[in-house]
Design a binder for these strands. Structure first.
Lengths: 233, 233
DNA sequence: CCAAAAGTGTTCGAATTACACCCATGA
DNA sequence: TCATGGGTGTAATTCGAACACTTTTGG
């Protein structure tokens, strides 16, 4: 006899909350799509889809994201599981939300547009279907929280970046001013950055030195029990 | 036509990771049951069960916990969603883990035993089915983390408790020694405790003053942006 | 009177905050 | 030469860590 046969079965979906930092505009954007099927066809939605029979949840999230936006190799983490009956009017669907933070590269902009997805700035989000707004809210709170204790910032910038760019990024995440000197002192004190000889000269005459994030140093830091902690109120 | 009809449907379960603090033994225990159906019948397991069609995930967790252990009105929070294909050999089951921290009251001990559940100390856990060990690990890490930033401790003690009891509790959570004077200083500095005139005289001749946790003061503290933060290594 | 647990302060170093001016350069 | 953005240091304060003795009282 088939096991568990007396229990109901439901659809399982994944929804991807992808935040992208736009280094030019110095703001954070959310990746959205127009839903291509009913119910709520044509409405704004997170990139989402159903889990296949032999697929882990993590893999489903990656596949769905690639299918809908063309983005590959994005490391997402599971955020929360949404399962209220009636959250999707089409059927009982339990959705596992995943989120990630990436840098918006120019190449991604094209890719995403070609696939029919859109980057929308956080302060101008359209209405989203179902409980997607709630998912985004939770993901944002999580983002602020994570940024405090993990070096998420570096993921959002190119491999080479200036300290001013990094600072602007943190200001975008926390939506507040941060003291330049204290920030530099603190970020350098972790010893996970390496100063390059090269300068970025587009935004100023003097130019600002590029730095790069050395992942191995960060790992060593964590192993030694020290914690990366940018205590930004 | 039925919407989403071409997608597969799966079982959704909830699993409850209930930590209980035993004030007499000064240790933390985990609530386990012996599984009553196949597969893995008779093996040690978290309290778990399947989600009914008209039930939210949160409600399912409460119902399942009550059904299996008799415990009512336990506030659980969602922890993580486990959905690897093959995690349950009986069928594809996506399980949402919930966890809570409670004080083990003598009355609960009877209730739990009558319902066939068991409190097992953390340092003597049996092997658990499927990925339940992994769930417990994650819940424990989350517990340590939460205890740092929220006054979870007070939930685990009777309404009246002594500072020594509270200290022992934190020592049990962090499994390390904590300086008595610094702990008292810190915990009192939050201003969320009220000293009572009454003393607990069972464990010492001199007796220790009872305190109680004033929830309204804690809420005020949080509103003012101050954070409850017991920075224990 | 003594054993056993409760209660209490101070000092030191580290970390965090606040804050203002000089530097380099291209236009 | 000047406007623009990059870069730097110090003093004051707060916070956390370490540490040892006195008090009370039932047996």
């Amino acid at each position: 006899m088939r096991l568990y046969s007396k229990y109901s079965r439901y659809l399982i979906a994944v929804d991807c909350i992808i935040f992208g930092y736009d280094i030019h505009e110095k703001n954070i954007k959310l990746l959205l799509i127009k839903r291509s099927f009913n119910p709520a066809k044509g409405k704004w939605s997170l990139a989402g889809g159903f889990v296949e029979p032999d697929e882990s949840l993590d893999n489903a999230a990656c596949r769905v994201l690639t299918d809908l936006t063309g983005l590959k190799n994005i490391y997402m983490k599971q955020l929360f599981c949404y399962g209220d009956p009636g959250r999707d009017p089409g059927a009982r669907v339990i959705s596992v939300a995943y989120s990630a933070l990436i840098k918006i590269k120019d190449i991604d902009k094209e890719l995403v547009t070609k696939n029919g997805a859109h980057w929308r700035p956080l302060n101008k989000l359209p209405d989203l279907i179902f409980d997607h707004q709630e998912m985004v809210g939770k993901a944002l709170r999580d983002l602020c929280f994570q940024a405090r204790i993990k070096p998420v910032g570096f993921e959002l910038l190119p491999a080479k970046f200036t300290l001013v760019q990094l600072l602007d990024l943190y200001r975008a995440v926390y939506r507040k001013d941060i003291d330049k000197r204290n920030f530099r002192k603190k970020i350098l004190s972790f010893g996970v950055l390496e100063k390059l000889d090269e300068k970025e000269k587009e935004t100023s005459k003097r130019g600002a030195y590029y730095y790069k994030f050395i992942k191995s140093r960060y790992k060593k830091l964590v192993e030694n029990g020290s914690s990366f902690n940018l205590d930004v109120g």
